[in-house]
Design a protein around this nucleic acid. Structure first.
Lengths: 351, 351
DNA sequence: CTGAAAGCGCTAACAA
DNA sequence: TTGTTAGCGCTTTCAG
């Protein structure tokens, strides 16, 4: 293993000079700089991460805490994790992967041992036991999602209230008077996960404002559950013509169920989803949808941390306005032939 | 931040004694041990990870390199990553997440800077440019999947050759004489990913041995692709009665397509999948399948690394025998009413 | 069974 | 513009 002393000797300078050339923290004559850089390359020198961290009090590692529970849509999480890693690398940081089942103790462990410099915590619940711990930790953190009390924290999320409302508005604009929200599995609501709850709030509020009927129901991930739920909805609300889905895994089965039940999309039933764009585009017909901006959230989270690590402030709560794209799955009520324009995208600024 | 010196002072012993109490590397009188442990708890002491790593030459961190490319089934990867993290924690290690797009250089970076002690590399291709780098690295690694030349490496994988063969055998045993392998998107074959290739080999070999017709085709992830592929298959091979699917995202659409085309499962068409158990069980009808043992592979990978870190040897190539479970999607050829037993599980020992 | 002390490889004052 | 030096907090010889 080649050390900074080796490089210094090879270049005929002091070790600190090598250090400064590498960090750029003080000006170096271009002559010595080049000599040092040549030695670095010649010897294949890589600074030892532990020594650097010990001396500088910075590990350049961020913790990423991912949920391992049921009801989360996995591909979205992966997208998110990938964005976190990629963005972290752009700022010369690495990412330590933690699973949520280590609990608050896990956060303390990596933080208090200085394994990491900062934390990204996903899937935050309204009353999350990790939040008080994060508040006490001697390092910055950012939450994806936000708890009931976000005072003093940095939280980033899609504005699910606005997203739910946006879906209602779209359907109401098309003349639909009765619509349902097909939500996540009930376990997700029960553990008070913010995003599911908030979509529901936005959905209900907007339905009230628009004077349309809006019913809500959770839905499990099995085909049987989808079939049962839809049948019940149609039975209880025979005039239902609009469906909002926030539950990616059931989208395929749902389209299938509607087909089985003889409901054409969008002629007999308009569908709007809250899901990743590629999922919406993969369906037949393609789904009008509010996108889940996993990559943007991941990148934003890391950037907030980098900001905070540099001593600056980051906003307390960042809610991304929903981006809606009309596709083939939604059309006018009472008009079996017309669909909305393809690919028209709007950004809701109510956030 | 409380240091080992603080603990030593508090307990009235030397710092080295505290260290030895914590590591158990030399015998300590139960009296001092307890005194030290009390102090540790009283002060809330956590050893500094960088200092420990610098002094001991061990970071207790494993690198996990995940693919970020198309064609990989994301939930399986997550399962795998989760198993790696969970198992690593059991051996008191953490996991650093790297994306494959950092390439061989990324491996060198984390290894040569001593950021990690060992590496797990997923999605290895037959001729993977990371393999020569791994061979040179001064630390152990394990590959998930295996390259053409696995000499001197440690590789773990499902035995996909046996898995492909197992599916053929199952269908042939049921009397099917003409079957097709619906594989991964063609991009996966083109980049010479081992698992896709090997399943195909096993499928073809077994078909030859059993004297049945076996055709193979890749299939993209869109509904249209599934429809087109199945229609073409049925047109070119009107006597086709068995389908082997190695492509999780298309399973839902495939069942839908078969329904549309009026082929009942399993009466008119028997289906066998190579996929995670929960996916197989979620379908209607439930799918006979060879499971993808993501968790076992993840756990095995970490355990191999821990073994190697302790100086012991690990086997060069570990191929897990396929576990087959018969469910409702496969039945006898020419027998519209009978299906195989539910849940009968067999383990193929040919590996 | 325990303590003292020498590093591990780097950064960042402090000096020049 | 560069060099000298004192740590960072721990592990592990070496001594006793």
């Amino acid at each position: 293993m080649v050390t900074i002393a080796d490089v210094a000797r090879h270049a005929g300078v002091a070790a600190s000079t090598v250090s400064y050339v590498l960090s750029g923290k003080r000006s170096i004559s271009s002559d010595t700089r080049e000599r040092v850089q040549r030695s670095v390359r010649a010897l294949g020198y890589r600074p030892n991460a532990s020594a650097r961290a010990l001396a500088s009090q910075r590990s350049n590692v961020l913790a990423l805490v991912i949920p391992l529970r049921t009801g989360m849509h996995v591909p979205v999480m992966m997208q998110f994790a990938a964005a976190v890693v990629t963005t972290a690398r752009r700022y010369d940081h690495d990412v330590l992967l933690l699973t949520a089942d280590e609990g608050p103790e896990g956060l303390q462990r990596v933080a208090q041992s200085s394994l990491v410099d900062a934390l990204v915590v996903m899937d935050v619940e309204l009353d999350d036991e990790r939040v008080p711990v994060l508040r006490e930790l001697p390092m910055p953190s950012v939450l994806i999602g936000y708890p009931a009390d976000s005072e003093g924290l940095t939280c980033i999320d899609l504005d699910f209230v606005a997203a739910g409302a946006r879906c209602v508005d779209h359907l109401a604009d098309l003349g639909h008077r009765s619509m349902a929200l097909l939500g996540t599995p009930s376990a997700v609501y029960e553990r008070q996960t913010g995003f599911a709850q908030r979509t529901l709030t936005g959905f209900a509020e907007a339905a009230g404002q628009r004077g349309v009927v809006g019913v809500e129901t959770p839905c499990e991930h099995t085909f049987a559950a989808v079939l049962g739920t839809v049948e019940r909805l149609l039975h209880d609300h025979p005039d239902l013509t609009g469906l909002v889905v926030q539950n990616e895994p059931i989208i395929g089965p749902l389209l299938d169920v509607l087909r089985r039940l003889g409901r054409r999309v969008p002629e007999d039933m308009s569908l709007v989803a809250i899901c990743a764009d590629d999922v919406a585009e993969r369906q037949v017909p393609q789904l009008s949808s509010v996108t889940i901006p996993a990559e943007r959230i991941g990148a934003l989270a890391v950037e907030s941390l980098i900001t905070k690590l540099s001593g600056a402030e980051a906003p307390e709560l960042t809610l991304l306005p929903p981006e809606f794209t009309a596709r083939g799955s939604s059309g006018r009520a009472d008009d079996s032939d017309t669909t909305t324009g393809q690919g028209e995208r709007t950004v809701d600024r109510r956030a």
